[in-house]
Amino acid sequence: MTTLDCRGMLCPLPVIKLAQAFPELAVGETIAVLADDPAAATDIPAWCRMRAQELVSADDGRYVVRKLS
């Protein structure tokens, strides 16, 4: 699984990095984002909802997202 290390970055950067990495993924594949900006806790799940992608888990600054489409 690909891991994007976005620690130290402020929003919207972690979400931008996630969106930019997404085209490389196959449908069904997952990607992990490490982000310590408090805004990421809301914005990564919100991005998944807006883009109809699956947030698999969000634990302690580690977000796993599955590509659905």
Binding site: L10, C11, P12, V15, A39, A41, T42, D43, A46, W47
Partner: peptide
């Protein structure tokens, strides 16, 4: 209500409680 516009660098607690996008 974005974090970068707050002195605390935390996003608006209102937007966070709603679960909506806080940046931009």
């Amino acid at each position: 209500g974005s974090a970068c516009t707050a002195s605390t660098l935390r996003p608006s607690h209102v937007l966070a409680a709603m679960g909506v996008l806080t940046h931009g």
